[in-house]
Amino acid sequence: MLELRLVQGSLLKKVIEAIKDLVTDANFDCSATGLSLQAMDSSHVALVALLLRSEGFEHYRCDRNISMGMNLNNMSKMLKCAGNDDIITIKGDDGGDTITFMFESPNQDKISDFEMKLMDIDSEHLGIPEAEYHAIVKMPSSEFSRICKDLSSIGDTVVISVTKEGVKFTTRGDIGTANIVCRQNKTIDKPDEATIIEMNEPVSLTFALRYLNSFTKATSLSESVTISLSSDLPVVIEYKIADMGYIRFYLAPKIED
């Protein structure tokens, strides 16, 4: 028996919108810890890891660990039927082949339930070891999104370099080149608008902008984004989900042939 009641239902709507273009089908793993997901894109270049901790739900019942395979496009269709202010409850039975999404309007005058078919998904879980990163950049998520969008109109790849000077995003295309440097900026009142650069060593890595732009679909989940970089490791782009957990995207770097 599974019953998860999420008062801020819009969070689930946003999470699915953030990952559905990257991943088609995924197993949602439910345990006492929370609801989690790990899935790779079809080319195995990018990975999304999601955690919604049990404490973040108003009611959380998960009698045994279960893995529920869902088509994210179908899930998105159903969750789009929930209002942004709705409370969403996810219900399932052990061994069942469907899951039910129940939507309650804030004043309880409309209650809907949508039953979705589950699917068997063979998914490979990767072990992601804890790593010491050479540099960790925290910046406003909207700023990161803007940079990725702007640069992708000029080039296909971006070089992200962190030095004492700041974090530099560089691209090159047929029409020319672009460099955007963001310096550390802690002096403003609002911490969400700060850019904070922790650097142990300078690092410079190349990534496909197509994937980074896809990750920025999570921008509305968090005011800030954390970019963790180490040479010869996938970059981690993390959006914290207030009081609940995170959505992390891992992207393998490109290397010179």
């Binding site: 790779m40 080319s43 195995h44 270049v45 990018a46 990975l47 490979e124 879980h125 990767l126 072990g127 992601i128 070891p129 790849t157 190349t206 496909a208 010869d232 490791l233 996938p234 891992y250 393998a252 770097p253 490109k254 290397i255 010179e256 042939d257």
Partner: peptide, 14 residues
């Protein structure tokens, strides 16, 4: 042109 690497080069299956 730089070559795209895949994740299994960095992370092993669990």
């Amino acid at each position: 042109k730089p070559k795209q690497q895949i994740l299994s080069r960095f992370f092993a299956p669990k």
